[in-house]
């Protein structure tokens, strides 16, 4: 009975992983929504393309619609827009050497914190 919590947790993960999670793409409109939520409206301060009603935002929405119809996928559309407007336009920063610190910093802190707690607390922990 000693390991039962651990066993249950493992079992649980297996169970949940085995649940078939189909990543269906959703309808066409939802796809436009999803893409435009990840884009910044560069002519309006800080809003997303989806949230904005400015001419620029509407144009980009039309642009996405046309490109989707042409058969481009989400990533290709981001790439296309990045080429035209710079990486400022996408809300998800690219994973490349410029941004390693951005992506890595939180995990680094988590690791350091974990090691620190381990070292500090190990001395304090005793089994009663």
């Amino acid at each position: 009975m000693k390991l039962s919590i651990k066993k249950i947790i493992i079992l649980l993960f297996i169970l949940i992983c085995s649940i078939s999670t189909s990543f269906s793409a959703g309808s066409f409109d939802n796809k436009i929504k999803k893409i435009s939520k990840n884009l910044r409206c560069i002519t309006c301060q800080g809003q997303s393309i989806d949230a904005s009603n400015s001419d620029f935002a509407l144009d980009v929405k039309n642009f996405i619609k046309i490109k989707l119809n042409e058969g481009l996928n989400e990533e290709q559309i981001y790439e296309l827009l990045k080429k035209k407007y710079g990486s400022w336009i996408v809300f998800k920063p690219e994973f490349k050497y410029d941004n390693y610190l951005l992506w890595g910093f939180p995990y680094l802190i988590f690791l350091i914190g974990g090691i620190y707690i381990f070292i500090k607390i190990r001395k304090k922990i005793i089994k009663f």
Binding site: K37, N38, R40, S48, G86, S87, W88, I89, V90, F91, K92, P93, E94, D98, N99, L102
Partner: peptide
């Protein structure tokens, strides 16, 4: 550092 503009938004 290098004059590049990036956005860090909800997906991050």
């Amino acid at each position: 550092i290098n004059g590049k503009k990036i956005s860090v938004g909800p997906p991050y």
